[in-house]
Simulated assay, not measured.
Amino acid sequence: MARWRPGSTGRLQQAAIELFTENGYDATTVAEIAERAGVTERTFFRHYGDKREVLFAGQQEFQSGFVDAITDAPPGTPAMELSARALDAASRALQEARGREHARARYAIISAHAPLREREQLKLAVLAQAVTDALVIRGIPDLPAHLAGDVVVSVFSTAFARWIAPGETRDLLDLQHEALAELANLAGTITAA
């Protein structure tokens, strides 16, 4: 087996998804993932601390897609427009990098294991805080920034679940825009007590 070959990270991720899907997460070993990817276990551990990390690789880049869109927006952009820009940028990157089938397989694996679901929820909580922090840095007051951070995660999660649903063919961006429009309609019907 080669000591090092380019593309190890991608091959490890693909091998892990395939094996988790075929054999189950708990029954799959790091050794099996490495073998399927054509690398050594040592190479696996150079990239990931454990097999769980394969499913959460790229978390920082994913979060940066949201934050960078907020940071790079023109001065004076309102909070909800910043949120929409963040959603669009991150969704484009997600679709290009992974694709729907990979996302479906990953989600099925995570959904079947409580500790992985907890990790996914933590990832989303960290994302909401990162979006909130980016909005505050842009001068958005604390309350609207927190609400917008939570809205971004809620809209993303809702659109993502619809995007990976069996038979769904619409683009993730379209599903997010639909969710944002529905949220605006809903907000328009709320009256203060």
Rank of each mutant, 00 (worst) to 15 (best):
E22I: 00
L135H: 06
D142W: 15
A97V: 04
A184P: 05
A79I: 02
G38E: 13
R170E: 07
Q14C: 04
T189S: 09
F56S: 02
A184D: 13
L183E: 03
L12S: 00
L147A: 14
T189R: 12
V67W: 12
G65Q: 07
H47F: 15
R119Q: 13
P6V: 09
A192E: 09
P166G: 10
V152Q: 06
A125F: 12
V30I: 12
I190D: 00
A37I: 05
R46H: 15
R42V: 08
L94A: 08
T28S: 09
I190C: 05
E35M: 11
R162L: 15
V67C: 11
Q121K: 15
A34Q: 04
Q176F: 08
H146S: 14
A31N: 08
A37M: 10
T40E: 06
L172G: 07
V30W: 05
G167N: 03
E61Q: 15
S154N: 12
A103D: 10
I164V: 14
D142K: 13
D142T: 07
L183A: 07
A89F: 06
M1S: 04
R42E: 10
E41P: 01
E32I: 03
L122C: 06
G7Y: 12
R85I: 00
Q121W: 14
F156G: 00
S8Q: 07
Q14Y: 02
H146C: 11
R36L: 03
E96W: 10
L172V: 09
D50N: 15
G7F: 13
L19K: 00
Y107W: 13
L124N: 06
A27F: 12
D72G: 05
R85C: 01
A84L: 12
I109W: 00
P6A: 14
R5W: 05
Y25I: 07
L19N: 00
E178P: 03
L12Y: 01
L124W: 11
A93S: 10
E61F: 14
V153P: 01
A187N: 09
S111Y: 09
L172E: 03
A86G: 02
T77P: 02
D26T: 03
I33Q: 00
H102D: 06
R5L: 10
F160I: 06
G167A: 07
A125H: 10
E178F: 08
V39R: 02
L87R: 02
Q95H: 08
R119E: 03
Q176K: 08
L143P: 00
E41G: 01
R104D: 02
D174R: 12
D72E: 11
I110N: 01
A193L: 14
P78L: 10
V54P: 05
V30K: 01
A2Q: 11
A108W: 06
R138P: 01
F56K: 07
A31C: 04
T28K: 03
L116M: 08
A84Y: 04
G58W: 15
E182L: 15
P78E: 05
L143E: 07
A34G: 00
F56G: 02
L55K: 08
L55C: 10
I137C: 04
A125E: 15
Y107V: 06
A114T: 08
G188A: 06
